[in-house]
Structures are given as structure tokens and as C-alpha cells.
Design a protein around this nucleic acid. Structure first.
Lengths: 329, 329
DNA sequence: ATAGATGCAAACCCTTTGCACATTA
DNA sequence: TAATGTGCAAAGGGTTTGCATCTAT
């Protein structure tokens, strides 16, 4: 069953020095009840059905008000007019836009965002916002089948994908640390890795419970298409790291370095997306994980340095502090 | 020194049943002389300087004509009006858009394009075109320094990056095959890998010569920012493959599989971008390489299967035929 | 009472179009 | 001489705005 989107507290959003107005309230409520991306005209039509005496100008003014209040976002699909989408508890995302039915579908890709940041950095360009739009024909239009009914809010999809990614990360993290513990020569190192593996195992079961609970909110949730794409989760980062441990001649120092690389990558990921949503299940999960990964990261760096000192060698650049995401540069 | 962009043969572009017109010629020529992304209004101003008596309507009509003829592309930077950019020998690309000076900078990213294709595939969406726009502040505006003068056409930048990528691929391919030859147990396999390494070495020197020649066309070419981003070149694909060969227990079969994965990736890359440009140096390089990688790929698959048969085992899925890029699905 | 919100119609901006006239093949 | 191309002005779609009126605080 479809969940109703959480409604924002309009009184709190209203900027100081502005008055309440029943017409605006009506427009905002009608807008928030809709799904998808409405043009000003669409909204005028919807409004006229409920109250004949609301003028087009007021609808335009209210749309602007919503954008300023952070309830709506103006989007441009190249049609020569703008559309508006919710932005309350609905983070920036990318779009697939069907040219034949004009429907649009949302997604997020951590991988694309990282690459975009790299490109911007390569040009010394300060990126404030990025737009990714894929134009084409959607499955429904191509096959003639009815479109999969909307239903799940992207808040829910975000939470689902957040948890899937967290679970995948824990699983491969567990594998990584278990293997690292097996190959570690230094007893202290073995101990550290073993402790990490234990932690991952514990978190994993917590997460799996939470995921099961989330699924109760929407029986079809599992079958809905991916909203948040992140390769680092399943086959990147820790999985790659575990793989790297299989190479010849990996010593304890190398194992630490690989672990540091992995934790840094996932910390970065969880932090970025954790900051994206407000007060949602997904946000919470992500921020918890970001924190956890940060702690792991610090411990690994500490241990790495300690081992280096014991071996009387100089630290390598892998031990620089936790980086901030490039977006905030 | 900046190279003048190659001018299209307008007579050839003119669709059948349309007449020549001196005013249109003037407008097209003025348009093609400009760089960057012009609004209709910008173009009207430029035109008025040369001939007072050309009307706004004609400019609009000519812009439409250029879009139809494939000389111009209509782009939308969310300003509430369209801009136009060259499209003659100028492939589709992505944009960095400076909100403070309204300049825009172009780039291409194979990595982003691949991810976009994956997202589309995951939703069974047929992608026809994708838009990636990074909005923010450019270096010139942020630092107050004058903008790096334009100069190089993206045709030249594309050729430069094409060659850089080809060279990086050859280098890591060479390393990969040399190492594979070293670890191969099967004498026939050792021979195959050695032959590949020789080939790579030969191509590498050809390419380096060609690159040197390209640089003569623009002394600053090397220092201009990256236009085409592709991670697979330097640290992906073969480099990763060579790395994989360092793992414990890599046998000849595994070496073939890794090689097949690498060749498939680079074949795919070279093919995609080779098809993008018309009659340019970059296009030629890329298509030659695509063909070369395809041959390597086929040989590796053949050898892999032969070895399997000799070892009396069943083929694994790695031996499926060369895939086409997802874009053409 | 007074600042802010609304309705109406006009104005705006960018773009397209109908029609008479000019050019080209 | 036909068929295209052009200029002009008008119309078109989407959006904003000036101003008188209404409404919340």
C-alpha cells in the first residue's frame, strides 16, 4: 500500500513577516498531495477544481513561495516551461524522463555524483548543484504495459536502499576483517581485525532486523526498482579489499592500508547520503554508519601508525585525516 | 595558437528542395565563428552589426535550419530560453555552467556515461540522450583571474585525450601481457601472451609519434584541461588486471579471463567514442583501437576455450561473445 | 490599522507564424 | 515563374507585475 508523504509543518516554514493565508494553504496542500512533477498549469487546473476563485497569479506566487520555503523545487525538463516537485524530505536526485508519456522517474547515484565531483575538481570549478537527466522511452510506453503504480515514496525507497547498502557493506566488511585476522602475523593486529569482524557481525544482525521492519511498511517494497545506486556497496570497497588480501605478499601494514581505504570510502558515502535526508529512517542509518566507519577508520590509522613505529619506518600518505566530501570544498 | 574550426560545406548540408540564401549564409557564418553557447538574442545582436536589415524572425528560422541540418544543437541551461552550440564535428558532451559569468565549459566522461546506461538498463528505460550539467562558479569567477583563453577546439582536445587514453591503455596492456607471459605455465599460453606484449609495444611507439605530431598543432594543447574523462585508461582495466595477476594462485585460465575482461572493457570504450566524432584524428585512433582490441579479445577467447578443452573442463560465462555498448540496446 | 495576500488585467520575455514582398533556381 | 526565403507585425505560451481590494494580525 502506498504511504502518505509526511506533511511539513507549514507554520514553521513560513518566513518571518509573512501572514497565513487560507488560499495559499489550500494550494500548498493540493501540491503536496500530488506525486510527480507538476507544471504551473497542472496545478492551476487542480486548484480550480477545489476553489474557482483562486487566480493563476496566486498559484504562481505560491509556487515561488514554496520554492523559497524549501517545500518545492523548480525543475526544467526542456519543455519550455518549468515543473515543480516536492522537496520536503525529498533530497535532490536525478531524473529519467520519458519523452512519450512525459512521466519522470527519480534516482540517485553515488557513483555518478563522485565522478561529477572529480570533473568539477579537475577544472577548479565550485559545483553547487548538478543535473542529470536521461531522456528516452520508459518501459511502460515501450511495452504498452501499464506503468508500475507509484506507491512508495522516495523516502521509503531511500531508506530501503540505504539499508541494503549498509548490509552489503557490513557483509563484505565482515569478510574482509575475518580474512585480515587470518593472515595477520602481528598478534596485536590479529586482535584488532578480529574485534572489527565481531563488531561487523553484531551490526549486521541489528541491520537485518531493521530492514525486515521496514519491509512491513510496504509489502511490495522489495520489488520496487533501485533508487540509490552505489557500486561501492556490493562489489567495491570491502569486497575489493578482501580480494586484495588474496594477493601475494600482503603483510600487516598492507592489510591496514587496504582497510583504511575501504573505511574511508564507506565513511564518505554514508556521510554524504546521511546528510541528504531530514529525519528519515535512511538518514539515521547512514549517519550511524558514517560515525561507525569513522571510528573504525581512526582505529585502523592509529594501529597502522603504531605498527609502523614498532617497525621503525616512516608513515605513508594513506594516513592523512578523514577527507570531507568534495562537494563542500 | 588557436585553430580555426573546420567549416562545414553548407551546400552539402542544405536539404533537397531548399534554396540558397545570402542572409542565411551570413547568419550561419557568424554563428560558426562564435565559440560557446549563444542565445538567439546574442546572435541577433551579432548579426545586426553586420547587416541591419536582417530580422529577428530570420535568425530564429535559421537557427532552426541549423539544428535540422546538424550544424547546431539547441541546449537548455534552465534560463527560460534556449542557447545554441556548434554540432558540426562536435559530439554531444556535458556541461559545467558558471552561474556568475554564464560561461559554460564542456567535458565528456565515459565513466558517467556507463553509469547512466546502467541506471537506464536497471529501469528498462530506453535512453536516447542524456544531459549532465554541473552548475556552480568557475575558477575565473572565484579567483578573479582572467579565464584561460579558449583556443583549442574540442575536436583537438578530443583527439589529444583519445591518444592519451590509447597510450595509457597500451602501456598497461603491455605490462599486463608481459607479466602474464612470465607467470604462464602452458607454453602455448606463454607464447600468446608474449605475442600480445610485442604488439602492444609496437603500437605504443606508433601512437607516441602521432601524439607528438598532434601537439605541434597547438603548443598549449598539453596544458589544457581534460575534456574526456575515462578511469579505465590509467588505473582501471589493464592496470587492475596486471594487479590481479599478482594474486595467489592465478593460473593460465584465470589469466585469460582477466585479459578477456580487460580487452572487452577497452574495446567497448574505443568503439563508443570512435563512433562519436566524424572524420577527426580522435575518431580514427579510436576506431583502429576498437578493431585491435576486438581481435585481441577474440584471440584470447579462442585460446581460453582451447585451453579449457585441453584441460577437459566446461567453459565459464566469461567466454560469451563481444558485447555491444548498452546505448544501442 | 497596517502589512501582507489576492484578483485582474496588462505587461514581459522568448519564440513562432500569417502574409505580402523579395530572391533564388 | 514557381518555389523558397524574408520582413514585419501580430499572436502565442509561459510567467511576472502594478494596482486596487481584501484579509490576517
Amino acid at each position: 500500500m502506498a504511504t502518505t508523504p509526511t506533511l511539513p509543518d507549514l507554520d514553521r516554514l513560513r518566513p518571518a513577516g509573512t501572514k497565513r493565508s487560507s488560499k495559499r494553504d489550500l494550494i500548498v496542500n493540493v501540491f503536496l498531495r500530488q506525486e510527480g512533477h507538476l507544471s504551473a498549469d497542472d496545478l492551476v487546473d487542480l486548484i480550480k477544481r477545489e476553489d474557482h476563485r483562486i487566480s493563476r497569479a496566486t498559484v504562481y506566487r505560491t509556487l515561488q513561495w514554496m520554492v523559497d520555503a524549501g517545500v518545492a523545487r523548480k525543475v526544467d525538463f526542456g519543455e519550455g516551461r518549468f515543473r515543480f516537485e516536492h522537496s520536503y524530505r525529498h533530497p535532490r536526485h536525478f531524473h529519467l524522463i520519458c519523452k512519450s508519456c512525459n512521466r519522470s522517474y527519480e534516482f540517485l547515484s553515488s557513483d555518478i555524483e563522485s565522478l561529477v565531483e572529480e570533473v568539477a575538481a579537475a577544472r577548479a570549478f565550485t559545483a553547487r548543484q548538478s543535473v542529470v537527466q536521461i531522456y528516452g522511452t520508459c518501459e511502460a510506453c515501450r511495452t504498452g504495459k501499464p506503468p508500475a503504480e507509484e506507491g512508495a515514496t522516495s523516502e521509503l525507497l531511500f531508506a530501503r536502499d540505504a539499508m541494503r547498502i549498509a548490509i552489503a557493506t557490513e557483509r563484505s566488511g565482515l569478510e574482509f576483517y575475518a580474512r585480515a585476522a587470518r593472515i595477520a602475523k602481528d598478534p596485536r593486529g590479529r586482535n584488532v581485525f578480529q574485534r572489527m569482524a565481531e563488531e561487523e557481525k553484531h551490526h549486521l544482525s541489528t541491520l537485518e532486523n531493521r530492514y525486515a521492519k521496514l519491509l512491513e511498511q510496504d509489502p511490495q517494497l522489495e520489488s520496487r526498482p533501485t533508487f540509490l545506486f552505489f557500486k561501492g556497496a556490493a562489489n567495491g570497497l570491502f569486497a575489493r579489499g578482501a580480494d586484495d588480501l588474496r594477493r601475494k605478499g600482503v603483510d600487516d601494514l598492507e592489510a591496514y592500508r587496504i582497510g583504511i581505504r575501504c573505511e574511508r570510502g564507506s565513511h564518505r558515502f554514508f556521510k554524504r547520503y546521511g546528510e541528504r535526508f531530514e529525519d528519515s529512517e535512511g538518514k539515521q542509518i547512514f549517519l550511524e554508519f558514517a560515525e561507525e566507519e569513522r571510528e573504525h577508520l581512526e582505529m585502523l590509522i592509529r594501529e597502522y601508525r603504531a605498527l609502523l613505529r614498532r617497525q621503525d619506518r616512516h608513515p605513508r600518505r594513506t594516513s592523512r585525516p578523514v577527507p570531507r566530501p568534495a562537494a563542500s570544498r
